[in-house]
């Protein structure tokens, strides 16, 4: 099952070439008088690429990227901080957790997109309504992970720490906190992804800047090329953020055993 890295890369490029080739072919070469992928609905790869380059050259994209990044980071930071704090608190106070349990479940069951109009009403069209939407997504992921992490601290590690003579405060610093953090970081990719989803969906529903706004504007004037260009930039943006998250994760979780076969 081992494949040479060079060969793998070649095959991966081949997939892209075939897909883009098919797209270009369907959009520009008529088959029996009709286009397989009419340009009006699908644009062409060349046009999309030109548009992407143009967006970067003219510099208009930077503002939108900056806004989306700001919203994502804010949503992630605020949502994580809230999730860690409340998760910790609930895990250490089981009665509190039991009282709030049905409400937490209820709010979490709600598709968060329906909250977007409310946030917009409350917080306006600026970045904060998008941040709020992102927070509502991130919070629950982090909350559940931290809650689990604190509750599932190994009882032996805990007993050992107690026998060492750790006070509650020291247990928090040396046992509960690292354990909860490790659970939080195990969901880092998911929560960063959701922070971005919150930002983009919020922008899509009503904003004056951001990648979601860009895509929505293009769609409003049937500018399919613009939609695809926006999607392409968004995908690249997500990949870069994900790469950054992986770097941070590797730095912070050196103590964790590497799951077999996960290291690519």
């Amino acid at each position: 099952m081992k494949i040479h890295p060079g060969k793998l890369l070649l095959l991966q490029i081949l997939v892209a070439v075939v897909a883009i080739g098919f797209w270009q072919f369907g959009a520009t070469v008529p088959v029996g008088g009709t286009y397989l992928l009419p340009e009006f609905f699908f644009s062409t790869p060349l046009d999309v690429m030109k548009r992407v380059v143009q967006l970067f050259v003219s510099g208009t994209i930077w503002k939108h990227l900056w806004i989306t990044l700001t919203e994502t980071v804010l949503a992630f930071v605020i949502g994580s901080a809230g999730g860690v704090a409340i998760g910790f608190w609930f895990a250490r106070k089981p009665i509190l957790a039991a009282v709030f349990d049905p409400y937490v479940k209820m709010v979490n069951a709600l598709p968060r997109v329906v909250l977007a109009p409310i946030f917009m009403l409350w917080l306006g069209l600026g970045i904060w309504s998008k941040v709020a939407l992102g927070v509502s997504l991130v919070f629950f992921i982090v909350f559940f992970n931290v809650y689990q992490g604190v509750k599932e601290v190994s009882p032996v590690v805990l007993a050992n720490a107690r026998m060492m003579g750790m006070s509650e405060h020291q247990l928090f610093r040396n046992v509960y906190w690292p354990s909860a953090l490790s659970w939080m970081f195990s969901s880092l990719h998911t929560s960063v992804g959701f922070a971005l989803v919150g930002a983009v969906v919020g922008e899509y529903l009503g904003a004056s800047a951001g990648l979601g706004y860009l895509i929505h504007q293009a769609e409003g004037v049937f500018d399919v090329t613009g939609v695809f260009a926006g999607m392409f930039i968004l995908a690249a943006f997500v990949l870069i953020i994900d790469w950054g998250v992986t770097r941070i994760e590797n730095r912070l979780l050196v103590w964790r055993p590497q799951p077999a076969g996960e290291q690519a």
Binding site: V157, A159, A161, M164, G165, S179, W255
Partner: peptide, 25 residues
């Protein structure tokens, strides 16, 4: 002092830190 049957070291600390923490606290 209690030496447990199962692993009781803190997995997020190095061997040295695991021993040192017993004094630091």
């Amino acid at each position: 002092g209690y030496l447990f049957q199962q692993d009781a070291l803190m997995p997020w600390k190095t061997a040295l830190d695991n021993v040192a923490i017993a004094l630091e606290i």
